[in-house]
Amino acid sequence: MSLNSDQNYGALWLLTPTVLLYLATFLFPLILLGVLSFAKFEASITTLGFYFDNYIKIFSDGITLKIFFQTVRLSIYITFWCLILGYPVALLMRSCSPKIKMILLFCVVSPLLTSIIVRNVAWLLILGRSGMINDTLIQWELISKPLPLMYNEFGVILAVVHVYLSFMVLPLFGALSSINSSIEEAASSLGAPFWRVFLSITLPLSLPGIMAGCTLVFILSMGVYLTPVIMGGNFILTLPMLITESVREQYDWPYASAMALMLLLAIGFMVVLSSGLQRLVSRR
């Protein structure tokens, strides 16, 4: 046995607890999920077997697929707004002093340090019918009745973007920081205006960061649950909400398992697509 393969075994031994943990908490439940998704649920009783009823229902009941695409659409909106709002922040972080950089970083990460309930209740106080914004606008006589700022898609997107912005900014900041600034300086010194430098150098070189950030935010958004429940007033339905409802109210584990696997496959597809695009970008 060569020294190298011996070293590999040494590394394997160190991995044992992690592998065991993953087997017990990820792989085993995943197998259970797969088995359950082919079970049948009738008259409140689950029968194990190999039935395709749940998968057929997903594509034929006229609602699950619709909600799935609604979830994808919501995730795309969230990802888009995170990118639009996050890119300037990452650019600014790259160019400012270390002290300002730390302050910006703290601002971006701070929503993650707050409890989800506290955060959403804070949004109620800001966006509610008698919230800060509506009260101020009414006092200034700019509006006569409160604007519908929450319990709708706008409220959900705003609250989710607020949290997931950090998952966009951090990879973007990493990608932007790795760009050799002398290339941009050279372009500027040769007379290229700021927007040209940005479009021809900064943006293309930051594409790996954009891809990573978009993938992260999209995947997280596909699984978002509590914020749409609170901020959407239950009017905005996402697939995770449907899965929870199926388990909690109908006790229909088989159907919930099939939907969960569908969600997992969609996310897996997104990851594969994203890594393919990243390879394409890095080759260019």
Binding site: L3, D6, Q7, Y9, G10, L12, W13, T16, P17, V19, L20
Partner: peptide, 23 residues
Amino acid sequence: IINKGIKRRTVIKSAIAAGVGLS
């Protein structure tokens, strides 16, 4: 010495021991 001591069988044994120990 360390590398000689860590064989495939040792890894499996360690995994089982870790599992039992953790549970």
